[in-house]
């Protein structure tokens, strides 16, 4: 295929312990380390491997967000993507809007495959890929742990609750990645330098004709309920006694 489109979302780094602002207006993101959503990194790695096998000509990374997101797109370029597209908006887009934006870019680029992370680790929505596939009228293969291309078809192994499911899909299609699809490569310093020369197109969201969605209104944020501090027992006898106390043995 000619092109693979990969979505990258800028999120709070997965090692950061996120805290809710004391006024409940959201979570603290000021001064917090931001990274590519880990599932999206896996999506990009898969696209790069497909290209390196000679099964795709070009890998395009796309993101939606403020100009800050260029940082993550540059990282994607340093990993090996050929070019980047930033659909620029200061607003947080909801999954339906994100899917509509991606569809608009698909119409322009005509990729043979779209690879996205199965969920972003900030909102944990797990929606955008499925929505994109629906709007596009194309197959979706979510939670992929193996992807084998064969001409205008692909076989995808999906991680489902009861095991591993295999499906066959016609291309083009949307595939969303699970953790065990691959292990993303590390970026090397010379690649970071080279990435600076690769094209990064910025398209203002207003230039795309995107239908507005009725957004869900997030009205309050709260920390989760804390669990009570527990006890430490000295040995197995102590553990058994504690479990019997609670009626669990």
């Amino acid at each position: 295929m000619e092109k693979i489109l990969v979505g990258l979302k800028r999120v709070v780094d997965y090692n950061v312990r996120v805290r809710v602002r004391s006024d409940g207006s959201g979570v603290e993101t000021d001064g917090v380390k931001m990274s590519i959503n880990p599932f999206d990194e896996i999506a990009l790695e898969e696209a790069l491997r497909i290209k390196e096998r000679g099964e795709a000509g070009e890998v395009i990374v796309i993101s939606i967000g403020s100009s800050d997101v260029r940082q993550q797109l540059r990282t994607g370029l340093a990993m090996g993507a050929d070019r980047a597209i930033l659909v620029e908006t200061d607003a947080q887009t909801d999954p339906l809007t994100s899917a509509r934006i991606l569809l608009e870019i698909i119409k322009r680029e005509d990729p043979g495959l779209v690879l996205l992370g199965k969920q972003a680790i900030d909102n944990d929505h797990n929606q955008t890929g499925q929505m994109l596939a629906a709007l596009w009228g194309r197959p979706q293969a979510t939670f992929a742990s193996e992807l084998v291309l064969d001409g205008d078809q692909a076989t995808v192994t999906r991680e489902v609750d009861i095991g591993l499911e295999s499906i066959e899909i016609d291309l083009p299609a949307v595939v969303t990645t699970d953790l065990r699809l691959n292990e993303p490569r590390y970026v090397k310093l010379p690649d970071i330098m080279k990435a600076k020369k690769k094209p990064l197109d910025q398209i203002p969201l207003a230039d795309l004709d995107i239908e507005a969605s009725a957004a869900l209104n997030e009205t309050a944020f709260a920390p989760p309920e804390e669990r009570q501090k527990g006890i430490i027992v000295d040995d197995v006898a102590g553990l058994v006694a504690a479990l019997q106390d609670k009626g669990l043995l």
Partner: peptide, 15 residues
């Protein structure tokens, strides 16, 4: 609903 791996709970109003 939970977000950020359950580190925050958000109240969501549907239109």
């Amino acid at each position: 609903r939970p977000i950020y791996a359950g580190n925050a709970i958000v109240t969501v109003e549907a239109p």
